[in-house]
Design a protein around this nucleic acid. Structure first.
Lengths: 151, 151
DNA sequence: TATTGTTATACTCTATAACTATA
DNA sequence: TATAGTTATAGAGTATAACAATA
């Protein structure tokens, strides 16, 4: 007979093991998805574009914070996006230090096209799963989104 | 009363929505975790190290295939790991073209230390979730690992 | 002085093309 | 000829440090 364990000890063990498995699974899945963007746009540019689309007009600093990169990195990213006509950069009228970023019509179309493409790729991989597995993934997506928002 | 839908139509809609949410959640979680490696080692080197530890002795080509990068990239990565004394590179005795990669004792210790660190970080984020949420994440980790293996 | 953003510089990761050595 | 791996080269992403402009 195994030694008795309290509920909290059991839970702690389960969580540690889960953390390890989840970390590996998430890293590998993300890596695969990053390679599915296509459209000739890089993952970094695509991420920035998607963030601006989701948030609406943002400053350079806000984008840096959201993407968790430094401001010089965002400056570079935005430069590339503006060069490609995907983002419009406008100076703030009241505060001369601030620059506002918005999507151009081309940028908006591109975001939607790439998003559809990635979703279709992942959806192909999900087809054929059991309904219970689908539901588990749905709940997991919700939970992961929530704990990231709390970060 | 809404129009009748077949089970497969319902499933297709659910899967498309799930794919989208899951993609975003996975990308964000992976990004956060990548920044938690610490120990002065980069995510790429750490990934290679973890793969070699998991698989046991591997050739350069096998590592490239597993990490889904090109062989020149692996050559570079391995060079860095050998320089840091984390990996040992040995020529095959029968086939002079082949190089075998294994972890050094330092490499093995580092993998374990970093792994523990990341797991603890994620585990902190998971504590406080409902038991049902934990279970959903556990199932999701299993499913994601499985569909990645099939890729 | 503090804040917003940029420029300068350097390092890591990655790929493609061309190459060497071995089979 | 084919295969395993390397070298050469170039491009993308990132950070830190130093700076400019504005508040």
């Amino acid at each position: 007979m195994p030694p008795a364990t309290t509920i909290s000890e059991r839970a702690a063990t389960d969580i540690a093991a889960l953390a390890s498995q989840l970390r590996i699974a998430v890293a590998r899945t993300a890596r695969t998805l990053r390679r599915e963007a296509g459209e000739g746009i890089t993952p970094t540019l695509m991420c920035a574009l998607a963030t601006i689309e989701h948030h609406g007009p943002m400053t350079v600093g806000a984008l840096a914070e959201h993407e968790r990169v430094t401001k010089p990195t965002v400056t570079r990213t935005v430069h590339a996006l503006v060069d490609q006509g995907l983002v419009v950069r406008t100076g703030d009228l009241d505060d001369g230090r601030v620059a506002w970023l918005t999507l151009s019509a081309d940028g908006r179309r591109l975001v939607q096209r790439v998003r559809r493409r990635k979703d279709e790729y992942l959806a192909r991989r999900l087809r054929g799963l059991e309904p219970a597995e689908i539901e588990a993934l749905q709940r997991a997506a919700d939970v992961l989104a929530r704990i990231e928002d709390e970060a």
